[in-house]
Design a protein around this nucleic acid. Structure first.
Lengths: 217, 217, 217, 217
DNA sequence: TATGAATGAGGCTTCATTCAT
DNA sequence: GATGAATGAAGCCTCATTCAT
């Protein structure tokens, strides 16, 4: 429209069609993360999300089949970010120490990405497909870790099936604990030390070999 | 309108005003339990509940301030039923055995009252006040049990604060496990044995004295 | 609100609950007739209808399951009015004359109830159930008339099945003619005389005994 | 972007600009015929049509001013095909026989081009301009035929204006009959014989000279 | 106290059309 | 000329709550 504007074409104009498309989708996605994190799934109307994203409501449906599709993508996406985040902080100590590290990293992540907690907790009921996908992602990865620890001699006397149950307990425990201790009037705070210590005692005695040393180096 | 109706009023008429009132409220309450258990909180519209209860929508507001008030009463009420149910099945064996019994009784209760699972799980987000109340109820009772076990010498080395954390882990673990293992295509099934055994190992080794015998009789 | 208003309760207040209910439903129904007649089914949004009726949109759904249900009731209802209207104007002359009278009365009715034409014509596509019902109503009644004429000796050589086809042709012909000749820029005008005369010739010669006299007195 | 693409451009590239243009327009047109025939006008969104045609939505507006313009072209185009189809099957027998032949050919055409019926029937309300144009086309041609029959002595006692009315009745009758007898669960079937016979009786007696022989050769 | 019709805001989604690339 | 993302109005319907009877 402004005739001579070609050379001035600003930041956004540099993007080609494909990039612009991805950028818009990303805007919607990020907006949804923010909105669900703040208000919960049930208040995350398309109107609210698109307003937060700064696009028209109709635009939403150019990028997602419907509201639910977006909602179901939220958790698995952030969940993978979390897995990566935790992996980076796990260290190379013995298996029990690593488990403690993971436990702590989980709560660190929650503070880094405060939306995560609510998204995780509510997903089961508002985004069941996404929740299941996330569960499978986590469960698979976690069981693999436990198996490796068993091979290394750090765990004895647990079957694969029992591992799966243990993993579910861990996940459940973290969820409960995070909800109980990490919320402080909306804001997210650190988990108190006694929570860590209780968890440490429970799992080092109950799951991993008490001595804290793996059998095979 | 109702003036001369006293003699004709059948069965129900035997009730006086207060009893009738309580009876109606109860009908609504039971209907809500059924509806939420079957469809979840978000589908539990006032219309659906009153229809299930066989009363008019307006009647609802004679007994509850608003929809949320009823929803918030649901879980604490059933939760207390559950506590009683579990207490009756705890037995008098040593502390570790009792804990296993409680764990099992929890899953029994779920099968007795199939609505409970959904009400419990969703309450956190749809009936936060009721959820908190339920949490406090359970947590208080459970911590008391653990303290007593510690006094009896069955638990060592855990502080009161750690007990609270442990209780939350237990509750979280049960929730997760029940969701993972108790749903079978809508119906509620028994929890597989390896889940029980995994739990048993984890807590007898991690919390209670491994030998399974209390210090003081 | 106005404290002493009880004795003043005006016109509408005389109605009891049932009557008020019926009255509201009727208001919606009449509004729909007007709106569909003027704008056609596709423009007959619930918003437009309720606005015309002077009620809230939500009220609509207290009286009709959904938009389509109302739409499907429109034609059969008015169709029965039409049947009655025509019957009253059929007279007692011989069968052929009666047929001409019916033909004329049809066009009279269209002018009495100008909405009818559009409702009739569009119903096939926008209210198929209602259309089918109307068709059955009319077809049944019409075939009965033809049969009686055959019994009276006014018609020869047509089978029952052929009657049904004839009735469809009559209905189709009327529809076409009414659309062609009765619309005058939205308003509805009388059908020109040559249309009547053409119809008269066609059916008195083609269907009824040409002489215009029935066999049996 | 397109600079060097000339040599590589396959089959389609043989077409010059004008031909390509016409080809695209044709694709859209055919797609619209298919879509309207199958789903009706109201479901014939621009999105659906362009998808069926395999072009982008924007392309549509390079060839048609708007959605309605295309819709209005649909019926007149196919209508002319029908006229040609019927003419080829009219034969050279006497006028009454020819009329019967035309009646039969109409139903044949419906089976040849199954989309036609729906397009014809719905056009009146969804493509009024196109419908009017079609009506004029048919009416003009049909009246010419009747006039010629009158000149040949096969019809007596009908004025030109009455001819026009008769033509409308014929068209209306055909429409009704085709809808009543030609739809069989979506598919299009043959019209039962009694329909043909009823029509034959009606028009040979009512319009054409009963003897079936024209006055002047 | 019981009733149930009335309300109107708000939710999701579709769609014809525009316009920058 | 072709593309397809962006737009925003409009449609249907649900729902918690109110209020006159």
């Amino acid at each position: 429209m402004t005739q001579g504007s070609a050379p001035a074409a600003a930041k956004v104009a540099k993007l080609n069609r494909v990039e612009r498309n991805a950028w818009t989708k990303r805007k919607i996605f990020d907006a949804a993360t923010k909105v669900v994190g703040k208000y919960g799934y049930s208040e995350a109307s398309v109107a609210r999300i698109t307003e937060e994203a700064g696009v028209a409501q109709g635009t939403f449906y150019n990028h997602f089949e419907n509201r639910q599709e977006l909602l179901d993508q939220l958790l698995p996406k952030i969940g993978m970010d979390m897995v990566e985040f935790i992996r980076e902080r796990t260290g190379t100590a013995n298996a029990a120490r690593q488990e403690i590290a993971r436990f702590g990293a989980f709560f660190e992540f929650i503070r880094e990405v405060p939306e995560f907690l609510r998204i995780l907790n509510e997903a089961e009921f508002f985004a069941p497909n996404g929740y299941q996908k996330h569960l499978d992602n986590i469960s698979t990865a976690y069981v693999r870790i436990l198996r490796r620890a068993r091979q290394a001699g750090a765990i004895e006397d647990f079957s694969d099936e029992e591992f799966e149950a243990i993993v579910h307990m861990f996940m459940g425990a973290r969820g409960y604990l995070s909800r109980r201790y990490s919320y402080a009037d909306g804001a997210v705070t650190a988990v108190p030390h006694h929570v860590i210590s209780a968890y440490e005692k429970l799992i080092t005695r109950g799951l991993y070999r008490p001595c804290g040393e793996d059998k095979q180096p």
